[in-house]
Nucleic acid binder design. Structure first.
Lengths: 168, 168
DNA sequence: TCCAAACCCTTGGATGTCCTAGTATATTGC
DNA sequence: GCAATATACTAGGACATCCAAGGGTTTGGA
């Protein structure tokens, strides 16, 4: 959380794995650990950019998703599926966004079980601003070169498909 | 979280970005989002394997780290630095591991501020078993090919170094 | 027709992460 | 030698995620 370490702790872990006779899985272990750490770093950057907007990444993702919906509204279960998080996480996010008047709940016109989430005008405005900030300060300066970006998209896309995220 | 989606939600997001004039950052956005989602999938797999051992990933990481320490003991601040998590997260993990009799706190011999964490015999045994399970069920079946693993290690290693994780 | 099964959302609980602040111990500088 | 600063850990709070369980609504088969 502070000063850079003198050595890469993940490379050290990989060496430890090899030293203990697990050389056959040391590399995948290191790759997976690196993904976990990279996610942590990226999430921290994103949260830093979103904080001035009063948003967290979870809430931003929901706002962004709604802003792309044709009607500006989505059923909660649909949002849960598209964001690939547990339904209770959506409930949680909607509760907070609704308190902030960025989204509103409304009953589904024909299905009494379903609740629709809809962007408010403020919500739409804030989503635009937050997206501009993220594009400028995170996505536009990811540190990944174009070739690496393409490779990541391809490799992780295959991984996610194999994991059952989508069929496409 | 359920059935596979008909289409890749991240590819859809990338298309939405492009459609709204953010084509220059759409690809990095997709790559970063893919990293976040991949981390989520991997973490879920890991937690599933560790659950029978009564461990979470956070606690496992601490046990594994200690099992590689020469003396079998580490100062909490050292563990925090190596695991790259906030000191309070280590306090939290140690609290629970200590309750489970897997680690023990002891005072540092010369520095009264420092607390050492030490593996118990049970802790060392459990760490071995959990590592074997993770190697067999997660790292050994990551789904990443050898070339992809090497590429991920290299690209994410550069990213982490640039992000200030280490100097090496 | 009507009741069981399926589905949708919410509540409550467990965990983990971070931040802020507070207490105790070391180190430093005058 | 002592006060000011730095370091180490912990307590409390805000958020996020998941799981388990409960109450309301729909659907579908007997």
């Amino acid at each position: 959380m502070g000063t850079p370490l003198p050595r890469d702790p993940i490379a050290d872990a990989q060496r430890n794995w090899e030293r203990h006779g697990w050389g056959d899985v040391a590399a995948p272990m290191a790759a997976i650990t690196a993904i976990m750490r990279t996610q942590q770093i990226l999430l921290a950057r994103i949260e830093t950019v979103l904080k001035p907007f009063g948003l967290t990444f979870a809430r931003y993702e929901l706002l962004a998703l709604l802003s792309f919906a044709r009607s500006g509204a989505l059923p909660m279960n649909k949002a849960s599926a598209l964001l690939q998080v547990h339904p209770t996480s959506v409930t949680n996010a909607v509760d907070r966004l609704e308190k902030a008047a960025l989204v509103a709940r409304s009953p589904h016109p024909t299905d009494g079980r379903t609740t629709l989430i809809e962007l408010t005008a403020e919500g739409r405005t804030l989503a635009k601003k937050a997206t501009a900030a993220l594009n400028a300060e995170v996505f536009g300066q990811s540190g990944f070169g174009p070739d690496d970006v393409d490779h990541l998209i391809r490799v992780l896309g295959t991984f996610r498909r194999d994991a059952g995220d989508f069929e496409d």
